[in-house]
């Protein structure tokens, strides 16, 4: 009796894995990216997206809203005020979702490491699947990162969104420590 229960659970797990694998294959081949231009590095996105480097050759396209995007690209430093909006945008995205931290500012604070206004590591607040080092990274590096991300999705390694679900308390505690409140309360929301 017990064996049967265990067996069905195991089969279910296996089926889920198979479906995940198939889904990951399709996810990796059609990626819509929302880029959140917070810092100077946003300057390198136009040549990456347009004909010079042309990210569409990888099957990626730009998306205007986070709700319909798969990838959130954070291009540079984030002030506490922007970080609140980024967390909002991230929460709005549907699973599965991937985050790329772009530039040394998202990695360790970069040249703004001692600023009272900017955060120093992005993976404290939202799960980052991939970082691109550099201040600022050239389009070649960005294309390289997209390639890597696609490979990671195919292999099922880009699991940041699951990590966020499983460790939500930890992320939330960090968010509260740095921001006091994640809720946006400004004069445009009154």
């Amino acid at each position: 009796m017990f064996n049967i229960v265990e067996d069905t659970q195991k089969t279910r797990e296996d089926t889920r894995k198979t479906w995940e694998k198939i889904a990951d294959y399709f996810r990796a081949n059609s990626i819509w990216m929302k880029w959140y231009c917070t810092g100077c590095g946003a300057m390198e996105m136009p040549p990456t997206m347009t004909s010079r480097f042309d990210m569409e050759q990888l099957g990626m396209g730009p998306m205007a809203t986070p709700r319909q995007a798969d990838v959130l690209l954070i291009t540079g430093y984030l002030s506490a005020k922007t970080l609140r909006r980024v967390i909002y945008s991230y929460e709005q995205m549907q699973d599965p979702k991937y985050v790329i931290g772009f530039g040394s500012c998202t990695l360790n604070g970069g040249i703004y490491f001692d600023s009272y206004a900017t955060m120093t590591r992005l993976d404290h607040y939202i799960p980052v699947d991939l970082y691109i080092a550099g201040c600022m990274p050239r389009p070649e590096a960005i294309m390289n990162a997209f390639d890597t991300l696609i490979a990671m999705i195919k292999k099922g390694e880009a699991k940041g969104w699951k990590h966020y679900q499983d460790n939500y308390e930890w992320y939330n505690a960090n968010q509260i420590h740095s921001l006091k409140e994640v809720r946006v309360k400004d004069e445009f929301h009154e």
Binding site: F113, Y116, T118, T120, R121, H124, N174, S178, K185
Partner: peptide, 25 residues
């Protein structure tokens, strides 16, 4: 938003200490 320290452009404000406390490195 939700600033709770001394105004940051005052010369006696220490941005590094604030950053290390608020934003772990």
């Amino acid at each position: 938003e939700l600033w709770d320290e001394m105004p940051p452009m005052r010369k006696d404000f220490d941005p590094l200490a604030y950053s290390q406390d608020k934003f772990p490195e």
